[in-house]
Design a protein around this nucleic acid. Structure first.
Lengths: 234, 234
DNA sequence: TCCATCTGTCATCAAACTGTAACATTGACT
DNA sequence: AGTCAATGTTACAGTTTGATGACAGATGGA
């Protein structure tokens, strides 16, 4: 099995070196870029299998880079791991909406980054076509992922950031049951340290916004002993 | 749900006591070691689920302990949280050379340490991202493992957690007979201590939900003297 | 700065679940 | 048929789980 080629994009040379040293040690081959403008050239010529992208870049914002990569059909399938500084909470949402496959907040563990690179590569090899839907509709609940808009029976609902993320994640995998821990991993991210009971509370808050009958939820269902899921849409 | 066992390694007894008191209060069980040499014995005999390791130790440096733990395949997967004094070379600890899963600098907040312990355990426990079959169908019984949904002739059935687990396990190994004790091990887990007759009761409950004719079960069959099995699907 | 919102934790409560024990039934074998 | 062991059935009490409301710290904007 041949080893994947990874593109690292960051203006901080130290970080690029740190990552490329470690990833090379793991057998990956590395391509580098230090600003947002040259990225596209590199992608076109070197054809990397995965891109690690810093959010703050000279020339062009990381988000814009990601958008543009996604917009081009030739590169739309390129897996992206976004690097962000801590506290860019909102950007996390946007980053995922834009179509980053994962993100990590600085400072991060190199070991973990490598682990994620592996995971994402494995995933992208399994599922060649990951197309992100823009919108979702089910029984009067309308979700527009791109604009972060949620409506119940055509009436707009305002959700807090966490509620949005939770709803996005669950609705994107309808019918699938997730344990609290899995939700913590996927929705909150690995760098948070909170109790799994917090999930209950957010589920409840989300429900109170979108469910009419809290006793008999239509969208967010509880599977006792297992976790939660979005209703089976089939 | 069983609680994890945590090994605390530090030569400062005060710290060990502080941590073990607080972690025990959270429901973890604790094992202690006060020097680097005895650690390996303790790991081998007590099988902790996570190790909290001080960097400065008599006998053997914390880094070396960590390295050695990683070098041994039997213990390589043991999550490690490293305790360090401020200003030590953190890069080496995290990810690069050693492979600690996380670190905290002294003085640290006990609360935060507990939070990290939880997170790391969550991550290491959730690992089975195995690709199991998602669905199963046999003689009018439909099981969707991912969504925890069971249907009889297209009609949804609600099962309790244990019933679900039992059905999942048996149906994933159709035709194969399991004794009550084997079922206890596989379905309940190795660390439960209940009467094997409890299995009967659950089998009964499960049957009453999915079998039409309790006298002549179609799915869950009794093999007198041996145990139970899911019907042979071939 | 103050105020509103958001988040995570906790204590509490009701409902659902689970294990046990006692009793009933079945099946194998004499 | 009679006997014994294995299995089925039922009721019950203790435990677990998820829902809920309140609260304090954090965050961000005006």
């Amino acid at each position: 099995m041949f080893m994947s080629k990874i593109l690292i994009v960051d203006d901080e040379r130290d970080i690029v070196e740190l990552l490329s040293y470690n990833l090379e040690k793991e057998g990956f081959s590395i391509v580098k870029a230090y600003d947002g403008v040259s990225v596209f050239n590199v992608i076109a010529t070197k054809k990397p299998d995965l891109m690690i992208l810093d959010l703050m870049l000279p020339g062009m914002n990381g988000l814009d880079v990601c958008k543009k990569v996604r917009a081009n059909p030739a590169t739309a399938g390129l897996p992206v791991i976004m690097l962000t500084a801590k506290g860019e909470e909102l950007d996390k949402i946007i980053g995922l909406e834009i179509g980053a496959d994962d993100y990590m907040t600085k400072p991060f563990s190199v070991k973990e980054l490598i682990a994620r690179v592996r995971t994402i590569l494995r995933r992208s090899q399994d599922k060649p076509e990951t197309k992100l839907t823009e919108a979702f509709h089910y029984k009067g609940l309308a979700i527009n992922y791109a604009s972060c808009a949620v409506k119940i029976d055509s009436k707009p609902v305002t959700l807090s950031p966490m509620e949005l993320k939770l709803l996005f994640f669950l609705s994107r995998n309808p019918g699938r049951v997730y344990s609290r821990n899995q939700l913590l991993d996927h929705v909150w991210g690995d760098d948070t340290f909170i109790t799994d009971r917090a999930v209950d509370v957010h589920i409840r808050r989300l429900r109170s916004q979108i469910e009419k009958d809290m006793e008999n939820p239509r969208y967010i269902l509880t599977i006792r002993g297992f976790g939660y899921k979005f209703a089976d849409t089939k």
